[in-house]
Design a binder for these strands. Sequence first.
DNA 1: CGTTACGTTTACGTTCACGTCATCTTTCCT
DNA 2: AGGAAAGATGACGTGAACGTAAACGTAACG
Lengths: 133, 133
Amino acid sequence: MTTDRTMTIREMCEAFDVTPRTLRFYEAKELLRPRREGQKRLFTKRDRARLKLILRGKRFGFSLEEIRQLLDLYHMDDSQETQLRKTYALAETHLAEMEAQRDELNEAIAELKGQMAWGAKRLKELAPDRAAG
Amino acid sequence: MTTDRTMTIREMCEAFDVTPRTLRFYEAKELLRPRREGQKRLFTKRDRARLKLILRGKRFGFSLEEIRQLLDLYHMDDSQETQLRKTYALAETHLAEMEAQRDELNEAIAELKGQMAWGAKRLKELAPDRAAG
DNA sequence: CGTTACGTTTACGTTCACGTCATCTTTCCT
DNA sequence: AGGAAAGATGACGTGAACGTAAACGTAACG
């Protein structure tokens, strides 16, 4: 019983803090494929997993088109070997990108901390009594 | 003698792989302030440092407006204490964001590696002879 | 049985971050 | 002097990622 309830568009919006427009837009761009009950969209557990990945991808600065490609990585099912290899290769590229980004991010964090230490020192000089934080 | 040569717009473009339009756009948005020699822009070491930070910020998904705020962090000079405190507070916020992003990125990397391991296994089953990578 | 709430499609509007002309100086070369 | 090369200033165009408004369906509620 894997909490496989289907959700309405409103429920999705509240759960993920997005607008209906956004979900319909993602569907138009083929990032989501909710089932239909008549006209109405029904979002499954699978859709929720994909949406989670989409939003994460966005936070990392990937475009929706890039994300669309990436989504297949998490749904490599019974594709042909050729397709599977292509997908795998794409995954390697993106993995490298993400690791590079993480490393650069760590550098940036270190630099920023350095600047803040300098700022804290200056604040301390200006007002030795009131703490800096 | 800190390599403090000023550079023309073309030299900047080649050095950072951007277009003239981009540099003029950043200036219009007050992210850069090159000096002028008559009409012509002259980019100093300081401008180069700022541009580097701008491009990095972009890779991390910050908007130009956010980046503009952040740039002050690296140029906290002789501002008033009040201003310095505000800047410092902003830095703390951004630092937290960046650390959160790094952590999430690490998670995502781990997940992706997991998926790739699964894919590699499937490829191995399909063709035990040809290696996967 | 009206209206309120939720859902749909279609279509035009908007913001960000530039790209792409068109048109003008300034400068350097022959 | 004539002309290409580099730089400048508008002004309009563009792609991505939605926002927003109009017009419609339908299902439940008082």
